[in-house]
């Protein structure tokens, strides 16, 4: 199938907000801290288990920090989104990449969600659901004002589209 007419999906047009990298890093750090503390506290308190547990804590910390340093940058280059008048188009992932396309006419609900950490970074997540049980599309790490605007726009377009989206 290799030929001059080969087609592939192009990356969506828009990147996420730059602050998403910081948000992902913070989230990964928090995820790292909890198991490291769980391993480190007994390492301090329990004498005989100290070598094993401190090694475990160190390994967890190194792995967590490595992920924190490595993945958010990668995610940022992969995660992209685009909304046209006809469709929502999102690319996510790192090792497993995923491209999702949902036509505007099949969108049922549009939600914006802001977790506490996202609020601290001024970010928001837009979730677009279709009638499929497996069709929800999430755009994480958008600037919250942009997200609100996008949600409004999506709602407006989908309301103008007739049909029950199945």
């Amino acid at each position: 199938m290799t030929g001059e007419d080969a087609v592939r999906l192009r990356p969506p047009n828009n990147t996420l907000n730059e602050r998403a990298v910081g948000w992902w890093r913070t989230r990964l750090l928090l995820l790292t801290v909890v198991p490291v503390v769980v391993a480190a506290v007994p390492a301090v308190l329990i004498e005989p288990a100290r070598p094993g547990l401190s090694a475990l804590a160190a390994a967890l910390a190194v792995a967590g920090l490595a992920c924190t340093a490595f993945f958010p940058r990668w995610w940022f280059t992969v995660h992209r989104w685009e909304v046209t008048d006809e469709a929502v188009y999102v690319r996510t992932g790192a090792f497993w990449q995923e491209w999702r396309i949902a036509p505007m006419s099949r969108i049922q609900t549009v939600d914006t969600i802001r977790g506490p950490l996202e609020q601290a970074f001024g970010l928001a997540t837009v979730t677009v659901t279709t009638a499929s049980a497996k069709g929800a599309i999430r755009i994480e790490g958008l600037d919250h004002e942009l997200a609100a605007e996008l949600a409004q726009r999506l709602t407006r377009i989908t309301q103008a589209t007739p049909g029950d989206a199945t």
Binding site: M1, T2, G3, E4, D5, A6, V7, R8, L9, R10, P12, E82, T84, E86, A87, Y89, I101, P103
Partner: peptide, 25 residues
Amino acid sequence: QEEGTAFAAAAVPGLLEPFLERGSG
């Protein structure tokens, strides 16, 4: 990769076209 993308585009006309690029393959 290429044949599948073309197939998906052909199966639902109009949905994928705006997001495709035709390269040297």
